[in-house]
Design a binder for these strands. Structure first.
Length: 273
DNA sequence: ACTAACCTGTAA
DNA sequence: TTACAGGTTAGT
C-alpha cells in the first residue's frame, strides 16, 4: 500500500512515540514476517535494544538501534505499524509485537507481504535491498538532469520505468499516474523518447505530487493508516488514480484505463501525450 | 517484458 | 465466482 508519502507519514508519526524507547520484549506471532541475521534470531538480537532514530529510504523504514543493529521494514501492500501507549491485545492480522519501555509497537498486515529484517547498521546499505535503490526524488540532488540521465537508456514505457525502484525510489502506482498526469505525458510513451522539456515537467510533477501527498499525510484509498491509526487525506485530491471512465477534472474527457507493467493505469488521452 | 507467486478481503 | 487491490521477486 504505502508509497513514499505514506511511508514518510508513518515515519513521522512513529518517531514522536518510539524514539529513545527500549524494546523490552519481542513477540513474533507469524514467524515469516521477520528475517533473522545469519544464525542470530530476530528476537534475540532485538530484545533490549534502544531505538535511536527512524529514517526512510524509498518505501523502506530504517530503524537505527543501539549496539550497531538496525531494523529494515517494508509494508508492501497492506502492512501497518501501529503505536499504542498502553498494552493492547493484538488484532486479527497482527504478526509482530514489540513491547517498549513505554507502550507497544504492532506490525500487522492483512496480505502478509510486508517484512521486517534485522541487520547490522554498517551492512544495511551494502547487503540489503537498499543497495539497488535509485535516487530519492525529494532530495536536493535529484535534478531534472539526473532524472533524464536515468531514463535515456530505458526502452520500457515511462509508467513501468517510474515504478522501477532501481530507477527512482518511492513512486508506486498512485503517485506514478498522478505525476504523469501533472506532466502531461502519456504513460505508454517509451521512457527514452521524452524530450528535455517533458523530463523537466515530469521532474516537477513527481516532486509536486509527492510533496502534496506528504502534506495531506498520504492517500488512504483503502487500507493505509499512519502509526496512530489515522487516515491520510490525499485521496480527495487524486486527479486520475482510481478514476477510470470518469471525466477528466481538467478537460472533461473520459479518463482511459489500461494495464501497464501488470498495473492498472489511468490517464487522460487529451491532456496527456 | 510479461506472468505468476506471495496472501486476504472486498466489490462487481 | 471472479477480478482486483498503494509491491516486489523470481521465474520464463
Amino acid at each position: 500500500m504505502p508509497e513514499l508519502p505514506e511511508v514518510e507519514t508513518i515515519r513521522r508519526t512513529l518517531m514522536k512515540h518510539v524514539s529513545g524507547l527500549v524494546i523490552s520484549k519481542v513477540n513474533v506471532l507469524w514467524p515469516a514476517v521477520v528475517q533473522n541475521w545469519q544464525e542470530r534470531t530476530f528476537a534475540d538480537v532485538v530484545t533490549g535494544r534502544k531505538i535511536n532514530s527512524i529514517e526512510r529510504r524509498g518505501k523502506y523504514l530504517l530503524f537505527t538501534l543501539d549496539e550497531g543493529w538496525s531494523l529494515l521494514a517494508h509494508m508492501r501492500m497492506t502492512g501497518r505499524l501501529n503505536y499504542y501507549p498502553d498494552e493492547q491485545t493484538p488484532e486479527r492480522h497482527t504478526h509482530l509485537v514489540f513491547s517498549l519501555s513505554q507502550g507497544e509497537l504492532h506490525f500487522s498486515d492483512v496480505r502478509k507481504f510486508g517484512r521486517i529484517q534485522v541487520i547490522p547498521t554498517d551492512m544495511r546499505l551494502t547487503s540489503s535491498s537498499l543497495a539497488k535503490l535509485g535516487p530519492e526524488p525529494l532530495e536536493p540532488d535529484f535534478t531534472a538532469d539526473l532524472l533524464g540521465g536515468r531514463l535515456t537508456s530505458k526502452k520500457l514505457s515511462i509508467k513501468a520505468t517510474l515504478l522501477d525502484q532501481r530507477v527512482l525510489a518511492g513512486l508506486g502506482n498512485i503517485y506514478a499516474d498522478e505525476a504523469l498526469f501533472r506532466a502531461g505525458i502519456a504513460p505508454e510513451r517509451k521512457a527514452c523518447s521524452l524530450s528535455t522539456e517533458e523530463i523537466f515537467k515530469l521532474h516537477g510533477g513527481i516532486q509536486d505530487v509527492l510533496n502534496a501527498g506528504i502534506s495531506s499525510k498520504g492517500t488512504s484509498f483503502r487500507d493505509y493508516r499512519d502509526a496512530n491509526g489515522q487516515k491520510g487525506n490525499f485521496q480527495a485530491l487524486l486527479q486520475v488514480y482510481g478514476r477510470g471512465n470518469e471525466p477528466c477534472l481538467h478537460c472533461g474527457k473520459l479518463l482511459e484505463k489500461l494495464r501497464l507493467a501488470g498495473r492498472t493505469t489511468v490517464f487522460c488521452s487529451h491532456c496527456q501525450s
